[in-house]
Computed example of a mutant assay.
Amino acid sequence: MLSVTARGVEIPALGFGTARMDDHDERVRAIAAALEAGYRHIDTAQVYGSESAVGEAIQKADVDREELFVTTKLTDDNRAHGDVIHSVHESLDHLEMETVDLLLIHSPNDEVSHEETLDAMNELRDDGLVSHLGVSNFSVDQTREAVAHSTAPIVTNQVEYHLHHRQDDLLEYCIDEEMMLTAYSPLGVGDALDEDVLQEIGDRHDKTAAQVAIRWLLQQPQVSTIPMSSSPDHVRENFDVFDFELTGEEMRDVFRVTGGLSDDLASKLDL
C-alpha cells in the first residue's frame, strides 16, 4: 500500500469514499467489501449520512481499529464553536469510535469564520477526540488562511481532482507545503474513462481505464484518492492498482489530454 506523508503524518494514499449511496445496508456491504479488499483509509462526512454505516462495517470487519485511517467532515450547519464540538461527539457515536483520525471543514462558509471553526477543531484535537485536521473544497488562498488560523497542521485539502478537472495551482501548493491533496471523484462522472489514452495505456498493462486513472493520481507527489463504488467488483478493481506503474511518458500522455504541463509543475512532478 502506498502512503502519503503530509505534515509528518503518514496516510494511506488510496482510500474508499462513501458519498452518493442512499441505502444503509448497501453502504455497509460496500465498506465491508472495501475493507476485505485491503482499503485502510475510509472517508465519510456528516452530510453523507454514512458515518453509522462506516461504524457498523468496521465493527463487523476483522480489522483492528489501529490499522485504519478514518476521515469525516463538518457540515455547513456545524461551523460555530459549540456546533463543532457537539456534532463531532455525535459523529464519534455514529462511527462507534473514541477518536477520528482526520476532521475536515467540508467547504468554505462565509457565515462563520474559519478561525472560529478551527479553534473548536483544535480544541477537539487537544482533547484527543480528533487526531488531525484538514479542509475540503478550499482554494489555495483559503487553504493558506486555514493554515494561518490553526495551531495544528492542516494535513490535507480534499477537492475534486481528475483528468477532466485539474487543480494544478493547488497541486503545486500542496507539493511545496508537504500537504496532501485528496482527490475525490477520481473517475469524474465516468466521462474520463472514455479517453482513448487511458484505454491504450491500460491495454499495455492489462489494466482497465479506471485503474489507469487511479494510478495516474497515485503517482503524483502528495496526492491520495478516494474512489467510491457500491459494486464489490468495482471496489476490488479500484484497489488493484499496486502491481503496475505508469512510465514518465505515460504520465505525460494523460496530462496532455487536458493541455499538458507547465514547466514548473512538470519539474515538481519529476516529469
Rank of each mutant, 00 (worst) to 15 (best):
S150I: 10
H165S: 13
V241I: 12
V147S: 02
D206Q: 15
M1I: 13
Q158A: 11
Q220W: 05
E250G: 05
R236M: 05
L171K: 05
S107C: 12
A146G: 15
P186F: 06
V257S: 02
A148E: 15
I31G: 00
K207S: 06
L129D: 03
T18I: 03
S52A: 15
D168T: 12
I11E: 02
R40C: 00
H114W: 13
R20Q: 11
A80W: 05
D243W: 11
V241H: 06
V88G: 00
D127Y: 11
E145K: 14
R125P: 02
E116Y: 12
D203K: 14
R215K: 15
L118H: 06
A61M: 05
S267V: 13
S113H: 13
V4T: 04
A6D: 01
G17Q: 05
S131L: 14
E90T: 15
L269S: 03
A53R: 09
A192M: 10
G82R: 14
A57M: 06
G15L: 04
D22M: 13
K60D: 00
R20I: 08
R29Y: 04
I175S: 00
L92P: 00
H24N: 07
H234F: 08
A45P: 01
R29L: 05
L129I: 08
D203T: 15
S185P: 01
V88W: 12
V100R: 05
E237A: 08
R215S: 03
D127R: 15
D191S: 13
H205D: 01
E178H: 15
G38F: 08
A34P: 02
Y48H: 06
G15E: 01
R252C: 03
D203N: 12
H149Q: 15
H94D: 14
A146M: 04
T247Q: 04
S139D: 04
L198K: 10
V223A: 04
